[in-house]
Measured scan of single mutants.
Amino acid sequence: MDPFVVLVLCLSCLLLLSIWRQSSGRGKLPPGPTPLPVIGNILQIDIKDVSKSLTNLSKIYGPVFTLYFGLERMVVLHGYEVVKEALIDLGEEFSGRGHFPLAERANRGFGIVFSNGKRWKEIRRFSLMTLRNFGMGKRSIEDRVQEEARCLVEELRKTKASPCDPTFILGCAPCNVICSIIFQKRFDYKDQQFLNLMEKLNENIRIVSTPWIQICNNFPTIIDYFPGTHNKLLKNLAFMESDILEKVKEHQESMDINNPRDFIDCFLIKMEKEKQNQQSEFTIENLVITAADLLGAGTETTSTTLRYALLLLLKHPEVTAKVQEEIERVIGRNRSPCMQDRGHMPYTDAVVHEVQRYIDLIPTSLPHAVTCDVKFRNYLIPKGTTILTSLTSVLHDNKEFPNPEMFDPRHFLDEGGNFKKSNYFMPFSAGKRICVGEGLARMELFLFLTFILQNFNLKSLIDPKDLDTTPVVNGFASVPPFYQLCFIPV
Rank of each mutant, 00 (worst) to 15 (best):
residue 415 E to M: 09
residue 179 C to P: 01
residue 167 T to H: 13
residue 72 E to K: 13
residue 165 D to G: 02
residue 67 L to W: 03
residue 409 P to E: 04
residue 56 N to P: 06
residue 285 E to D: 13
residue 276 Q to E: 14
residue 121 K to Q: 12
residue 445 L to Q: 04
residue 139 R to N: 14
residue 86 A to G: 08
residue 251 H to C: 02
residue 136 M to F: 14
residue 336 S to T: 15
residue 353 H to P: 00
residue 308 Y to W: 14
residue 303 S to R: 09
residue 232 K to C: 07
residue 160 K to F: 09
residue 39 I to V: 14
residue 84 K to M: 09
residue 356 Q to H: 08
residue 202 N to H: 15
residue 421 K to I: 12
residue 441 A to H: 02
residue 378 N to M: 04
residue 110 F to C: 12
residue 84 K to V: 09
residue 33 P to Q: 00
residue 139 R to F: 15
residue 366 L to W: 06
residue 8 V to R: 08
residue 70 G to Q: 02
residue 293 D to K: 02
residue 345 M to I: 04
residue 205 I to H: 15
residue 215 I to R: 06
residue 31 P to M: 05
residue 195 L to H: 14
residue 20 W to C: 15
residue 452 I to R: 03
residue 388 L to M: 11
residue 381 I to D: 00
residue 180 S to K: 08
residue 51 S to C: 07
residue 22 Q to Y: 15
residue 2 D to R: 12
residue 153 V to W: 01
residue 215 I to K: 05
residue 474 N to C: 11
residue 8 V to S: 11
residue 100 F to G: 08
residue 72 E to Y: 09
residue 423 N to I: 09
residue 450 T to Q: 03
residue 327 I to L: 08
residue 268 L to Y: 03
residue 133 N to I: 06
residue 464 P to H: 09
residue 340 Q to H: 13
residue 307 R to S: 11
residue 11 L to Y: 07
residue 133 N to V: 07
residue 401 F to H: 01
residue 328 E to H: 12
residue 422 S to N: 07
residue 250 E to D: 13
residue 485 L to Q: 02
residue 343 G to A: 14
residue 245 L to S: 12
residue 284 I to L: 14
residue 135 G to W: 14
residue 250 E to V: 08
residue 270 K to L: 08
residue 428 F to C: 04
residue 360 D to R: 04
residue 365 S to F: 04
residue 475 G to R: 14
residue 42 I to E: 04
residue 179 C to S: 09
residue 178 I to V: 11
residue 249 K to E: 08
residue 244 I to K: 02
residue 42 I to L: 15
residue 281 E to H: 11
residue 68 Y to I: 05
residue 92 E to C: 12
residue 416 G to S: 15
residue 230 H to P: 06
residue 130 T to R: 10
residue 67 L to M: 11
residue 152 L to W: 02
residue 24 S to R: 12
residue 281 E to S: 12
residue 266 C to E: 15
residue 436 V to T: 07
residue 52 K to E: 07
residue 394 V to W: 02
residue 353 H to Q: 04
residue 272 E to G: 14
residue 369 A to L: 11
residue 110 F to D: 06
residue 138 K to I: 09
residue 337 P to R: 01
residue 69 F to E: 04
residue 128 L to R: 12
residue 14 L to A: 11
residue 301 T to C: 06
residue 354 E to M: 02
residue 85 E to S: 08
residue 6 V to M: 13
residue 40 G to N: 02
residue 362 I to A: 07
residue 234 L to P: 04
residue 140 S to N: 12
residue 389 T to S: 07
residue 11 L to E: 00
residue 428 F to H: 05
residue 365 S to L: 06
residue 142 E to P: 06
residue 144 R to C: 10
residue 434 I to Q: 13
residue 90 L to G: 09
residue 398 N to Q: 08
residue 29 L to G: 07
residue 333 R to S: 13
residue 420 K to R: 13
residue 242 S to R: 15
residue 73 R to T: 07
residue 250 E to N: 13
residue 436 V to D: 02
residue 143 D to K: 10
residue 58 S to P: 01
residue 274 E to C: 10
residue 4 F to L: 13
residue 81 E to S: 10
residue 357 R to H: 00
